[in-house]
């Protein structure tokens, strides 16, 4: 497999400073988020501290309502923490910024645009030179096996293919980090397994840093270098566990006893933290 051409921007900027390599790419320091809701404030995240190193694949795992998306949106600058601070690449995150790529549960492609143009969407928004990124768009699409579909419209693609287009779109401007919020949970089990393999190949090739939100314990264990379990009431990080499986990873590691043990351990942790309550309300009994 040929190495992916660097984005024009990266080529122009030259290599990033070596000094920053030792520092974590993402630093989340004692972050809390309270939403002001109609039925009183909702404490979505009570306290979270987390460092993510460059090139690391970290999953946020936990039951519904435990604040995974909230934490991810704060890293993306789409929500402001109520307390604490988040920094990305050494600078604080206060608003959305150009150096992140996001993927949601739905591909959210523009239905009137071709696959290729959808991938180029961030380039247009960021006012980068479109023609110089076209080749990169095609390479990314080839990497996920969609080279024959450049001129197709999203409606002509399956759910898995649409999600692959969304991955290419998130990578097109070569962001420092990829934030993924349950990107595959709308897909059927077989497609989901395929997408997990595809994603792990992409990560092996691009070396991107990823924070990946999921409900699926197996998916988290298969993809991640580290799995962070959120839970409890009010919600916090209750486990931060490295995944001791080598790379490249393919689906057959899921049959190994070590993998089975890890899945079991994660499941027990989730169940322990999941004392019946889904969300913490400030002032509510604990």
């Amino acid at each position: 497999m040929a190495a992916l051409a660097p984005s024009p921007a990266a080529a122009a900027a030259g290599t990033k400073s070596a000094a920053s390599a030792a520092m974590p790419l993402v630093r989340i320091a004692d972050v809390e988020k309270v939403y002001g809701g109609r039925q009183g404030p909702v404490r979505a995240v009570a306290s979270a501290s987390l460092d993510v190193a460059r090139g690391e694949f970290v999953s946020l795992l936990g039951p519904s309502g435990c604040g995974k998306s909230t934490l991810l949106m704060m890293i993306a600058g789409l929500e402001r923490p109520t307390r604490g601070a988040i920094s990305l690449d050494g600078s604080p995150v206060v608003t959305p910024r150009r150096d992140i790529g996001i993927i949601f549960q739905d591909a959210t492609l523009l239905p009137w645009k071709t696959v290729e143009e959808n991938v180029l969407f961030p380039v247009r928004i960021l006012k980068l030179p479109v023609e110089r990124y076209r080749e990169r768009a095609r390479e990314l699409l080839a990497m996920v096996g969609l080279d024959g579909f450049l001129r197709h419209k999203p409606a002509q693609l399956s759910g898995g293919m649409r999600q692959r287009v969304a991955i290419c779109r998130a990578l097109i401007h070569d962001p420092a980090i990829l934030l993924m919020d349950e990107p595959f949970s709308a897909l059927d089990a077989i497609t989901r397994d395929q997408m997990n393999v595809t994603l792990s190949e992409i990560m092996e090739r691009t070396g991107k840093t990823v924070i990946f939100v999921t409900h699926s314990i197996r998916e988290a264990a298969f993809l991640s270098d580290r799995v962070v379990v959120m839970g409890g009431r009010p919600s916090r990080i209750i486990l931060d566990e490295p995944m001791p499986f080598g790379r490249p990873r393919r689906l057959d590691i899921e049959e190994t006893p070590a993998f089975g043990q890890m899945v079991r351990r994660l499941r027990l942790t989730i169940e322990e933290g999941h004392g019946g309550a889904m969300s913490g309300r400030t002032g509510g009994g604990e």
Binding site: A76, L78, P96, R98, I102, T108, L110, I125
Partner: peptide, 19 residues
Amino acid sequence: GMLRLCRSLTATERQIFLH
């Protein structure tokens, strides 16, 4: 979701409207 994506890309209101 599309609007959130646009905001995450630092799109302006004008860009969101036009695109």
